[in-house]
Amino acid sequence: MNVYDLATGPLVWLAFALCLGGLSVRTALFLRLARERDKPVFTGFEPRWAGLSILHWLLPLNVTALESPWVTLAGFLFHAGLLLVGFLGLGHAVFWNQAWGLNWWSIPDGLSDVLTLASLAAVLFFALRRLVRPEVKALTSAGDWLALALAAAPMLTGYLTAHGYGDPETMFLIHVCSGCALIAAIPFTRLSHALFFFLSRAVTGSDFGKRQVGAW
């Protein structure tokens, strides 16, 4: 087995196993801890308000979308590029199909290019914001740069691979490895917001909703 097979075979498996396994364990641990010593998570749960709160933030239907439109736009572009190209990019769709027999939608390469560039532009915007805005700068620590780099690396190398920049095999290998790193890191870094976004919004949406001040 050569490096190429290793990267596109067991490594991808390992990354997804860590990601899905890790997220399951973290969900279970969260619920256990909540049951043992954070009862309001359950007693205060209001499905309607939780659902509305999640919806208001999955769509730009919230106060921050109005007050910070540029950051909101960047946030949506960033996540859209990452998720859409990640799951549905043609190269990826072919890979899922060949490796695991999964058959789903794919998006044309041209669209993937646009989404990826927009997403990378958003990364640049976030990075500049961290350097320039004093209030964001004061909050920033090494972990924030790591999270940004983790997300940017597979997108950048994916784009470079697709357009034949650099040595194709090396570039591709870096792309696969950085993609796997990103996927595997989700449960163990603050990227865990992929899961906790929903749990947190459910808790807070219920909390605000039950006081009848709207689903924030």
Binding site: L31, R37, D38, V63, E67, S192, F196, F197
Partner: peptide, 26 residues
């Protein structure tokens, strides 16, 4: 004081500073 919410919120704060718009101190 340690609990599910405390741990979760400390972990997922993105240090984005968007909350500043809401605070009367800021």
């Amino acid at each position: 004081k340690w609990g599910a919410r405390l741990g979760m919120w400390l972990e997922i704060c993105a240090r984005c500073g968007l909350c500043a718009k809401g605070c009367h101190f800021f």
